[in-house]
Amino acid sequence: MNGPELDPEDVAEMRSQDPDGWRRYMRQQITNGKQRRDNKPKPAAPKPPGHRPGAWPVGTHPPGPPPEWDIPADVWRRATRHHSNEINRPDQPCDCGDCPPEETR
């Protein structure tokens, strides 16, 4: 602690003699502590040369669609049907259309 150490007896005596003086003393201690803080704003990071606000950096482009979007809807349907069959009906043959017949397994 960077200030004077306060004993409980001294605090009790100050408060009993002058309650408003104690409040003023504590407020001054708080003010002194706030003034010692380093509140200087940090400088902003420098912008890259040629930067246009809101634009992608030169030589780059926004990402394209995810690769899952290239999978045909029929393949998705069969895969989800197979997954559903594995979870909900594990003891029955799968009817997703991609699994071989039960006899050849």
Rank of each mutant, 00 (worst) to 15 (best):
residue 1 M to A: 12
residue 2 N to T: 12
residue 4 P to F: 11
residue 6 L to H: 06
residue 7 D to C: 14
residue 7 D to V: 12
residue 7 D to I: 06
residue 8 P to Q: 08
residue 11 V to I: 11
residue 13 E to M: 05
residue 14 M to A: 10
residue 14 M to F: 15
residue 14 M to C: 11
residue 16 S to N: 12
residue 17 Q to S: 15
residue 18 D to G: 07
residue 19 P to A: 03
residue 20 D to H: 11
residue 21 G to M: 07
residue 22 W to Q: 02
residue 22 W to G: 01
residue 23 R to N: 05
residue 24 R to K: 11
residue 24 R to P: 00
residue 24 R to T: 03
residue 25 Y to K: 01
residue 27 R to T: 02
residue 27 R to L: 10
residue 27 R to P: 00
residue 28 Q to T: 04
residue 28 Q to H: 01
residue 29 Q to A: 07
residue 29 Q to T: 04
residue 29 Q to K: 10
residue 29 Q to M: 07
residue 31 T to D: 12
residue 31 T to A: 13
residue 31 T to I: 08
residue 34 K to S: 09
residue 36 R to W: 05
residue 36 R to V: 04
residue 37 R to N: 13
residue 37 R to C: 12
residue 38 D to G: 04
residue 38 D to R: 10
residue 38 D to C: 07
residue 38 D to L: 05
residue 39 N to G: 13
residue 39 N to E: 15
residue 41 P to Q: 06
residue 41 P to W: 00
residue 41 P to Y: 06
residue 42 K to I: 14
residue 43 P to Y: 00
residue 44 A to C: 01
residue 44 A to M: 01
residue 46 P to V: 03
residue 46 P to A: 09
residue 47 K to P: 03
residue 48 P to N: 08
residue 49 P to L: 07
residue 49 P to N: 14
residue 51 H to K: 05
residue 51 H to T: 09
residue 52 R to S: 08
residue 52 R to H: 08
residue 54 G to I: 01
residue 56 W to L: 07
residue 56 W to C: 09
residue 56 W to R: 03
residue 58 V to G: 08
residue 59 G to C: 02
residue 59 G to R: 01
residue 60 T to R: 08
residue 61 H to M: 11
residue 61 H to I: 09
residue 62 P to C: 06
residue 63 P to Q: 07
residue 64 G to H: 00
residue 67 P to Y: 00
residue 70 D to L: 11
residue 70 D to Y: 05
residue 72 P to L: 05
residue 74 D to Y: 12
residue 74 D to Q: 11
residue 74 D to L: 12
residue 75 V to Y: 11
residue 76 W to R: 04
residue 76 W to L: 06
residue 76 W to N: 07
residue 77 R to L: 15
residue 78 R to P: 00
residue 80 T to G: 09
residue 80 T to M: 13
residue 81 R to A: 14
residue 81 R to G: 02
residue 82 H to P: 02
residue 82 H to Q: 09
residue 83 H to W: 14
residue 83 H to K: 13
residue 84 S to N: 12
residue 86 E to K: 13
residue 86 E to H: 09
residue 87 I to W: 14
residue 87 I to K: 09
residue 89 R to A: 14
residue 90 P to Q: 09
residue 90 P to L: 08
residue 90 P to K: 02
residue 92 Q to G: 04
residue 92 Q to R: 09
residue 92 Q to A: 13
residue 92 Q to D: 08
residue 93 P to Q: 06
residue 95 D to T: 15
residue 95 D to P: 04
residue 95 D to C: 10
residue 95 D to V: 12
residue 97 G to S: 05
residue 99 C to N: 02
residue 99 C to Y: 02
residue 100 P to T: 05
residue 102 E to W: 06
residue 102 E to P: 00
residue 102 E to A: 14
residue 103 E to G: 01
residue 105 R to W: 15
residue 105 R to Y: 09
residue 105 R to F: 10
